[in-house]
Protein backbone atom coordinates (compact mmCIF):
# COMPACT_ATOMS: atom_id res chain seq x y z
CA UNK A 1 0.00 0.00 0.00
CA UNK A 2 2.83 2.42 0.79
CA UNK A 3 4.49 1.57 -2.52
CA UNK A 4 1.32 2.36 -4.39
CA UNK A 5 0.98 5.61 -2.45
CA UNK A 6 4.50 6.55 -3.49
CA UNK A 7 3.64 5.89 -7.11
CA UNK A 8 0.40 7.89 -6.87
CA UNK A 9 1.97 10.90 -5.16
CA UNK A 10 5.03 11.01 -7.39
CA UNK A 11 2.88 11.27 -10.51
CA UNK A 12 2.43 14.81 -11.90
CA UNK A 13 -1.15 15.68 -12.82
CA UNK A 14 -2.45 19.16 -12.06
CA UNK A 15 -6.15 19.92 -12.65
CA UNK A 16 -7.10 19.59 -16.30
CA UNK A 17 -4.08 17.37 -17.02
CA UNK A 18 -5.07 14.16 -15.27
CA UNK A 19 -4.09 11.72 -18.06
CA UNK A 20 -0.88 10.61 -16.31
CA UNK A 21 -2.47 9.83 -12.95
CA UNK A 22 -5.52 8.33 -14.64
CA UNK A 23 -3.32 5.74 -16.34
CA UNK A 24 -1.60 4.85 -13.05
CA UNK A 25 -4.97 4.39 -11.34
CA UNK A 26 -6.51 2.59 -14.28
CA UNK A 27 -3.74 -0.02 -14.21
CA UNK A 28 -4.56 -0.72 -10.54
CA UNK A 29 -8.34 -0.82 -10.79
CA UNK A 30 -8.94 -2.41 -14.18
CA UNK A 31 -8.63 -6.00 -12.88
CA UNK A 32 -10.92 -5.16 -9.94
CA UNK A 33 -13.74 -3.48 -11.86
CA UNK A 34 -17.02 -4.83 -13.18
CA UNK A 35 -17.02 -1.95 -15.62
CA UNK A 36 -14.59 0.89 -16.30
CA UNK A 37 -14.87 4.00 -18.43
CA UNK A 38 -13.67 7.56 -18.82
CA UNK A 39 -16.23 10.33 -19.31
CA UNK A 40 -16.03 13.53 -21.32
CA UNK A 41 -14.29 15.50 -18.55
CA UNK A 42 -11.75 12.76 -17.95
CA UNK A 43 -13.27 11.25 -14.82
CA UNK A 44 -12.33 7.60 -14.38
CA UNK A 45 -15.54 5.75 -13.47
CA UNK A 46 -15.24 2.27 -12.00
CA UNK A 47 -18.30 0.19 -11.24
CA UNK A 48 -18.36 -2.59 -8.66
CA UNK A 49 -21.48 -4.63 -8.09
CA UNK A 50 -24.60 -5.23 -10.17
CA UNK A 51 -25.33 -2.71 -12.93
CA UNK A 52 -29.08 -3.04 -12.58
CA UNK A 53 -29.65 -3.25 -8.87
CA UNK A 54 -32.63 -4.85 -7.18
CA UNK A 55 -35.15 -2.68 -5.35
CA UNK A 56 -33.01 -2.71 -2.22
CA UNK A 57 -29.74 -1.98 -3.97
CA UNK A 58 -28.66 1.64 -4.01
CA UNK A 59 -26.58 3.40 -6.60
CA UNK A 60 -23.68 4.83 -4.61
CA UNK A 61 -21.07 7.28 -5.88
CA UNK A 62 -17.71 7.42 -4.10
CA UNK A 63 -15.55 10.29 -5.33
CA UNK A 64 -11.81 10.79 -4.87
CA UNK A 65 -10.18 13.50 -6.91
CA UNK A 66 -7.03 12.63 -8.79
CA UNK A 67 -5.94 16.12 -9.81
CA UNK A 68 -3.49 18.18 -7.79
CA UNK A 69 -2.71 21.86 -7.38
CA UNK A 70 -0.03 23.27 -9.67
CA UNK A 71 1.29 26.10 -11.80
CA UNK A 72 0.81 27.11 -15.42
CA UNK A 73 3.29 29.08 -17.51
CA UNK A 74 1.84 32.43 -18.60
CA UNK A 75 4.86 34.23 -20.06
CA UNK A 76 8.47 33.49 -20.98
CA UNK A 77 10.80 36.46 -21.03
CA UNK A 78 13.71 37.03 -23.38
CA UNK A 79 16.15 35.54 -20.88
CA UNK A 80 14.13 32.34 -20.56
CA UNK A 81 12.51 32.98 -17.16
CA UNK A 82 8.96 31.70 -16.84
CA UNK A 83 6.16 33.71 -15.28
CA UNK A 84 3.19 31.70 -14.15
CA UNK A 85 -0.17 31.65 -12.48
CA UNK A 86 -1.63 29.06 -10.15
CA UNK A 87 -3.96 26.11 -10.66
CA UNK A 88 -5.96 25.76 -7.46
CA UNK A 89 -4.92 27.05 -4.05
CA UNK A 90 -1.13 27.45 -4.20
CA UNK A 91 0.30 29.76 -1.52
CA UNK A 92 3.32 31.89 -2.45
CA UNK A 93 5.08 31.12 0.84
CA UNK A 94 5.14 27.46 -0.23
CA UNK A 95 6.79 28.31 -3.52
CA UNK A 96 9.94 30.23 -2.55
CA UNK A 97 12.83 27.95 -3.34
CA UNK A 98 10.52 25.11 -4.29
CA UNK A 99 11.20 22.69 -7.08
CA UNK A 100 8.52 21.86 -9.60
CA UNK A 101 8.28 19.49 -12.52
CA UNK A 102 6.49 20.27 -15.74
CA UNK A 103 4.10 17.78 -17.26
CA UNK A 104 6.67 17.03 -19.97
CA UNK A 105 9.22 16.08 -17.30
CA UNK A 106 11.29 19.29 -17.26
CA UNK A 107 12.26 20.35 -13.71
CA UNK A 108 12.37 23.95 -12.54
CA UNK A 109 13.00 26.03 -9.44
CA UNK A 110 11.16 29.05 -8.08
CA UNK A 111 12.49 32.36 -6.91
CA UNK A 112 11.41 35.95 -6.69
CA UNK A 113 12.30 39.45 -7.79
CA UNK A 114 14.05 41.38 -4.97
CA UNK A 115 11.69 42.16 -2.08
CA UNK A 116 11.52 45.32 0.03
CA UNK A 117 12.68 43.23 2.99
CA UNK A 118 14.12 39.73 2.73
CA UNK A 119 11.57 38.51 5.28
CA UNK A 120 8.58 39.59 3.12
CA UNK A 121 6.43 36.98 1.45
CA UNK A 122 6.63 37.49 -2.31
CA UNK A 123 3.44 37.70 -4.34
CA UNK A 124 2.92 35.24 -7.18
CA UNK A 125 3.33 38.18 -9.58
CA UNK A 126 6.92 38.73 -8.41
CA UNK A 127 7.92 35.09 -8.73
CA UNK A 128 9.33 33.20 -11.69
CA UNK A 129 10.43 29.69 -12.62
CA UNK A 130 14.02 29.03 -13.72
CA UNK A 131 14.43 25.87 -15.79
CA UNK A 132 18.06 26.59 -16.62
CA UNK A 133 17.24 28.19 -19.95
CA UNK A 134 19.51 30.95 -21.24
CA UNK A 135 16.98 32.61 -23.54
CA UNK A 136 13.39 32.48 -24.69
CA UNK A 137 14.46 30.44 -27.71
CA UNK A 138 16.37 28.05 -25.46
CA UNK A 139 13.45 27.57 -23.01
CA UNK A 140 11.94 24.08 -23.25
CA UNK A 141 8.64 25.30 -21.81
CA UNK A 142 5.88 26.95 -23.79
CA UNK A 143 3.12 29.22 -22.50
CA UNK A 144 0.29 27.09 -21.13
CA UNK A 145 2.41 24.18 -19.94
CA UNK A 146 1.65 23.03 -16.42
CA UNK A 147 3.82 22.01 -13.48
CA UNK A 148 3.38 20.55 -10.02
CA UNK A 149 5.50 20.36 -6.87
CA UNK A 150 8.52 18.08 -7.06
CA UNK A 151 9.03 16.34 -3.73
CA UNK A 152 9.85 12.69 -3.11
CA UNK A 153 7.60 10.49 -0.98
CA UNK A 154 8.80 10.13 2.60
CA UNK A 155 8.03 7.14 4.82
CA UNK A 156 8.34 8.09 8.51
CA UNK A 157 6.78 4.88 9.78
CA UNK A 158 3.22 5.68 10.80
CA UNK A 159 3.47 9.13 9.31
CA UNK A 160 3.71 9.45 5.54
CA UNK A 161 4.68 12.62 3.70
CA UNK A 162 4.33 13.62 0.06
CA UNK A 163 3.18 16.32 -2.29
CA UNK A 164 -0.35 15.78 -3.66
CA UNK A 165 -1.39 13.68 -0.67
CA UNK A 166 -4.45 15.87 -1.39
CA UNK A 167 -6.04 13.82 -2.79
CA UNK A 168 -3.98 10.86 -3.92
CA UNK A 169 -4.55 9.53 -0.41
CA UNK A 170 -8.28 9.52 -1.20
CA UNK A 171 -7.48 7.73 -4.46
CA UNK A 172 -5.46 5.17 -2.51
CA UNK A 173 -8.33 4.59 -0.08
CA UNK A 174 -10.72 4.14 -3.02
CA UNK A 175 -8.38 1.69 -4.78
CA UNK A 176 -7.74 -0.34 -1.63
CA UNK A 177 -11.45 -0.36 -0.75
CA UNK A 178 -12.21 -1.61 -4.25
CA UNK A 179 -9.59 -4.34 -3.77
CA UNK A 180 -11.00 -5.35 -0.38
CA UNK A 181 -14.65 -5.19 -1.42
CA UNK A 182 -15.23 -8.79 -2.39
CA UNK A 183 -18.90 -8.38 -3.19
CA UNK A 184 -21.63 -5.80 -2.74
CA UNK A 185 -25.39 -5.77 -3.25
CA UNK A 186 -25.05 -2.12 -4.23
CA UNK A 187 -24.29 -0.55 -7.55
CA UNK A 188 -21.10 1.20 -6.46
CA UNK A 189 -19.31 3.73 -8.62
CA UNK A 190 -15.83 4.73 -7.57
CA UNK A 191 -15.16 7.93 -9.46
CA UNK A 192 -11.62 9.27 -9.71
CA UNK A 193 -12.56 12.83 -10.46
CA UNK A 194 -10.86 15.63 -12.35
CA UNK A 195 -10.61 19.37 -11.63
CA UNK A 196 -11.59 19.30 -7.97
CA UNK A 197 -8.96 21.88 -7.06
CA UNK A 198 -10.45 24.41 -9.46
CA UNK A 199 -14.06 24.02 -8.31
CA UNK A 200 -15.21 20.38 -7.94
CA UNK A 201 -15.95 20.30 -11.65
CA UNK A 202 -15.40 16.65 -12.50
CA UNK A 203 -17.60 15.53 -9.63
CA UNK A 204 -20.41 17.78 -10.77
CA UNK A 205 -20.58 16.30 -14.26
CA UNK A 206 -19.94 12.69 -13.28
CA UNK A 207 -22.64 12.91 -10.59
CA UNK A 208 -25.02 14.34 -13.17
CA UNK A 209 -24.20 11.45 -15.49
CA UNK A 210 -24.50 8.75 -12.84
CA UNK A 211 -27.52 10.19 -10.97
CA UNK A 212 -26.64 8.30 -7.76
CA UNK A 213 -29.04 7.61 -4.88
CA UNK A 214 -26.41 8.67 -2.39
CA UNK A 215 -22.70 9.23 -2.22
CA UNK A 216 -19.66 10.44 -0.42
CA UNK A 217 -16.25 11.83 -1.18
CA UNK A 218 -12.88 10.64 0.10
CA UNK A 219 -10.65 13.63 0.65
CA UNK A 220 -8.20 15.16 3.07
CA UNK A 221 -9.20 17.52 5.84
CA UNK A 222 -7.17 19.90 7.97
CA UNK A 223 -5.59 19.33 11.34
CA UNK A 224 -5.59 20.87 14.80
CA UNK A 225 -2.66 19.11 16.43
CA UNK A 226 0.42 21.20 15.69
CA UNK A 227 1.67 24.27 17.57
CA UNK A 228 -0.66 27.27 17.50
CA UNK A 229 -3.64 25.52 15.86
CA UNK A 230 -6.91 26.26 17.65
CA UNK A 231 -10.51 25.12 17.87
CA UNK A 232 -10.26 22.32 15.33
CA UNK A 233 -10.77 18.90 16.81
CA UNK A 234 -8.88 16.80 14.28
CA UNK A 235 -5.62 15.01 15.03
CA UNK A 236 -3.49 12.57 13.06
CA UNK A 237 -3.81 8.97 14.17
CA UNK A 238 -7.22 9.20 15.84
CA UNK A 239 -9.08 7.74 12.90
CA UNK A 240 -10.65 8.98 9.68
CA UNK A 241 -12.99 11.94 10.11
CA UNK A 242 -16.70 11.83 9.39
CA UNK A 243 -17.54 15.21 7.95
CA UNK A 244 -20.40 17.11 9.53
CA UNK A 245 -19.68 20.49 7.97
CA UNK A 246 -17.06 22.21 5.89
CA UNK A 247 -16.73 25.60 4.26
CA UNK A 248 -19.06 24.69 1.42
CA UNK A 249 -21.36 21.95 2.59
CA UNK A 250 -23.38 20.46 5.39
CA UNK A 251 -23.33 16.68 5.18
CA UNK A 252 -26.72 15.00 5.04
CA UNK A 253 -27.58 14.00 8.63
CA UNK A 254 -28.71 10.56 7.41
CA UNK A 255 -25.31 9.94 5.84
CA UNK A 256 -23.54 11.08 9.03
CA UNK A 257 -25.67 8.61 11.03
CA UNK A 258 -24.93 5.81 8.57
CA UNK A 259 -21.20 6.45 8.81
CA UNK A 260 -21.15 6.81 12.60
CA UNK A 261 -23.19 3.66 13.17
CA UNK A 262 -21.09 1.67 10.71
CA UNK A 263 -17.83 2.83 12.29
CA UNK A 264 -19.07 2.02 15.80
CA UNK A 265 -20.49 -1.37 14.79
CA UNK A 266 -17.15 -2.33 13.25
CA UNK A 267 -14.95 -0.90 15.99
CA UNK A 268 -13.34 1.60 13.61
CA UNK A 269 -12.08 4.77 15.32
CA UNK A 270 -13.41 8.01 13.84
CA UNK A 271 -13.39 11.74 14.50
CA UNK A 272 -16.21 14.27 14.05
CA UNK A 273 -15.21 16.98 11.61
CA UNK A 274 -16.41 20.59 11.54
CA UNK A 275 -14.08 22.26 9.05
CA UNK A 276 -14.31 26.04 8.69
CA UNK A 277 -12.79 26.51 5.24
CA UNK A 278 -12.58 24.49 2.06
CA UNK A 279 -14.85 21.85 0.63
CA UNK A 280 -14.83 18.62 -1.38
CA UNK A 281 -16.43 16.89 -4.35
CA UNK A 282 -19.40 16.06 -2.11
CA UNK A 283 -20.60 19.64 -2.32
CA UNK A 284 -21.07 19.36 -6.07
CA UNK A 285 -22.66 15.92 -5.79
CA UNK A 286 -25.22 17.14 -3.24
CA UNK A 287 -26.78 19.69 -5.56
CA UNK A 288 -26.80 17.68 -8.77
CA UNK A 289 -30.17 17.07 -10.47
CA UNK A 290 -32.91 16.72 -7.85
CA UNK A 291 -30.34 16.44 -5.05
CA UNK A 292 -28.26 13.64 -3.57
CA UNK A 293 -27.77 12.76 0.12
CA UNK A 294 -24.00 13.02 0.59
CA UNK A 295 -21.24 12.99 3.16
CA UNK A 296 -17.48 12.69 3.23
CA UNK A 297 -14.86 10.50 4.84
CA UNK A 298 -11.84 12.69 5.45
CA UNK A 299 -8.27 11.64 6.00
CA UNK A 300 -6.69 14.04 8.50
CA UNK A 301 -3.75 15.69 6.79
CA UNK A 302 -1.22 18.21 8.07
CA UNK A 303 0.19 21.01 5.93
CA UNK A 304 -2.46 20.70 3.23
CA UNK A 305 -1.50 22.45 -0.04
CA UNK A 306 2.18 22.48 0.91
CA UNK A 307 4.77 20.32 -0.88
CA UNK A 308 4.95 18.10 2.22
CA UNK A 309 1.48 16.94 3.21
CA UNK A 310 1.45 14.43 6.07
CA UNK A 311 -1.05 11.69 6.91
CA UNK A 312 -1.11 8.85 9.43
CA UNK A 313 -0.97 5.33 8.01
CA UNK A 314 -3.45 4.01 10.61
CA UNK A 315 -6.00 6.63 9.58
CA UNK A 316 -5.57 5.55 5.98
CA UNK A 317 -6.11 1.88 6.81
CA UNK A 318 -9.13 2.71 8.95
CA UNK A 319 -10.56 4.85 6.16
CA UNK A 320 -10.31 1.81 3.86
CA UNK A 321 -12.04 -0.36 6.46
CA UNK A 322 -14.83 2.16 6.95
CA UNK A 323 -15.35 2.56 3.21
CA UNK A 324 -15.59 -1.20 2.72
CA UNK A 325 -17.94 -1.58 5.70
CA UNK A 326 -20.21 1.12 4.28
CA UNK A 327 -20.39 -0.44 0.84
CA UNK A 328 -20.53 -4.19 1.49
CA UNK A 329 -24.09 -4.27 2.85
CA UNK A 330 -27.43 -2.90 1.71
CA UNK A 331 -27.97 0.70 2.73
CA UNK A 332 -31.10 2.06 4.40
CA UNK A 333 -30.89 5.74 5.21
Amino acid sequence: MKQLLQKLTETFSPSGYEAAIREVIRAEVEPLADEIRVDALGNLIVRKGPSTGSEQAKKIMVAAHMDEIGLIASHIDENGFIRFTTIGGVYPQMLMGARVRFYNGIPGILYTEPLDAPTDTPSIEKMFIDVGAKSRADCPIKIGEVAAFERPFLDLGDRLVAKSMDDRIGCLVAIEALRALKSTPNEVYFVFTTQEEVGTRGAETSAFGLDPDLGFSLDVTGWGDTPGRKHFDIALGKGPAIKIKDGGMLSDPRIIQWMVKTAEANGIPYQREVLLGGTTDARAMQLVRAGVPVGCISIPCRYVHSPSEMVDYNDVQNAVKLTVALLENSVEL
Binding site: L250, Q286, L287, R289, A290, G291
Partner: peptide
Protein backbone atom coordinates in the same frame (compact mmCIF):
# COMPACT_ATOMS: atom_id res chain seq x y z
CA UNK B 1 -33.83 23.42 2.63
CA UNK B 2 -30.29 24.80 2.83
CA UNK B 3 -30.96 28.23 1.35
CA UNK B 4 -28.69 29.85 3.92
CA UNK B 5 -25.68 27.79 2.88
CA UNK B 6 -26.06 26.89 -0.79
CA UNK B 7 -29.59 27.55 -2.13
CA UNK B 8 -29.47 23.75 -2.33
CA UNK B 9 -33.16 23.06 -1.83
CA UNK B 10 -34.22 25.45 -4.58
CA UNK B 11 -31.67 24.15 -7.11
CA UNK B 12 -32.75 20.56 -6.58
CA UNK B 13 -36.53 20.98 -6.28
CA UNK B 14 -36.64 23.24 -9.33
CA UNK B 15 -34.72 20.58 -11.26
CA UNK B 16 -36.94 17.78 -9.96
Amino acid sequence: VQEEVSLGGAFTSAFG
